[in-house]
Design a protein around this nucleic acid. Sequence first.
DNA 1: CACCAGGTATACG
DNA 2: CGTATACATGGT
Length: 295
Amino acid sequence: MPTTVKIKDDLDLEKIRISGQCFRVTHLENDVFRLIAGDKVLFIKDVGDGKFEVSCTPSEWESFWAQYLDLARDYSGIRKRAQGKNDFIDGAMEYGEGLRILAQDPWEMLITFIISQRKNMPAIASAVELISQRFGDAIDVSGDASVTEFLEEHGCEDAACDLHAFPRPEQLAGASEKDLRDCSLGYRAPYIHETAQQVVSGELDLGALAALSDVDLFEQLQKAHGVGAKVANCVCLFGYGRTSQVPIDVWIARAIDEECEGVDPFAQYGEDAGVMQQYVFFLMTDRNRKLKGPK
DNA sequence: CACCAGGTATACG
DNA sequence: CGTATACATGGT
């Protein structure tokens, strides 16, 4: 019997896949999605009526994936409470209904968003996949009964082959700068090399940073080479769940400039500002996607 | 084949 | 303090 879970709140897997916060979510055949987080993989399918079939046991769902999907947070409630302050944000919230802020791993976010600078989203996903393939541990699901059963039922066995975990700090620290460059990291290779070594040496203790205030966390993260305000904010928001943090990239800057007459609308949303940022980012990038390539 | 991409470090004034 | 520029490489 496959595991089925019931989710009352917003959850749109396709929107999350293209939302720019995660780069290892794949849309497979038959509307099955594959999520890789650290060394874990989940296959999940929306079967309607708030029900989702998943490839893990109920226990794995409760102990990891429910938290990863941030199911304890009430996004429809957040949208309702935020409604009415700003017309543009109201529209973005409606457009992005189903988005959530995933509770991802700080280390994975730090490296992923160092990679992200001056790359478009497909290029980021490609580079993340390359370092995972080259330096991450292989993930073998062949012995996992709940996974194999799920894959067989939905006819997507191929999607469980050749999977690799995101590399651990020591695996990237052990990679030479040239090996990293071969993963199309360009000038970011030394940033990643240095950062990995700082994490391995304990000079940068990502676990300990979780105890810091938003402001202190934001400041400490920027001590890593290649981490400025924007990347630090992404790590705060996506890696440490600091939902008041608002990463400002080209798309958010464009939204403030062109849609809000140059006035930053996010401040008035307090602890939910980062969630609003995610809705706006999705609106701007999805609009652009439809504009240029209605593939 | 230009132009752009979820920016940042560095060098200026 | 603020502003200008180089930066590697792939997607469109």
